[in-house]
Amino acid sequence: MDETIEGSFQIIGGNFANAGEASMQLKSKLVELGIDEAIIRRAAIATFEAEMNVIIYAAAGRLQYYITPHEVTIKIDDMGPGIENIELAMQEGYSTAPDWVREMGWGAGMGLPNMKKNSDEFKIDSVVGEGTTVKMIIHFS
């Protein structure tokens, strides 16, 4: 593999029915490339949590991935409310999800910690009223 493999997805806020599509496609690409199963799982979990965050909180968002021979980079930009206090949002158990989201099995305050835990590099930027950008890199070795 010499070239970078890229993919891009539009994610629509509130669309639970298609949740996981981007993660599944990234997962199958990595399987095709013969990447280690445990690393694929980490990438899929981190991507899935990112997708869910856009679906739960934002009006819409875009997920892009880039696969090189050494790593996969996943970048998510959303048009959402933004995060007021990132440090607080990164705390395990902290969540601003509404009740109906919790009744659907999300909003345990584990999403962002889960994304960070499964990434080798994790960066989050947010502007209140504009949106949030997350960049995750997972190395293949």
């Binding site: 639970f16 949740a19 599944m24 799982r41 979990i45 899935f48 659907m104 099995g105």
Partner: peptide, 15 residues
């Protein structure tokens, strides 16, 4: 689980 939602299946596959 007691949660019957399609994303339970997707979560299962990813995990």
């Amino acid at each position: 689980t007691g949660l019957t939602q399609p994303h339970v299946i997707r979560t299962a596959e990813i995990a």
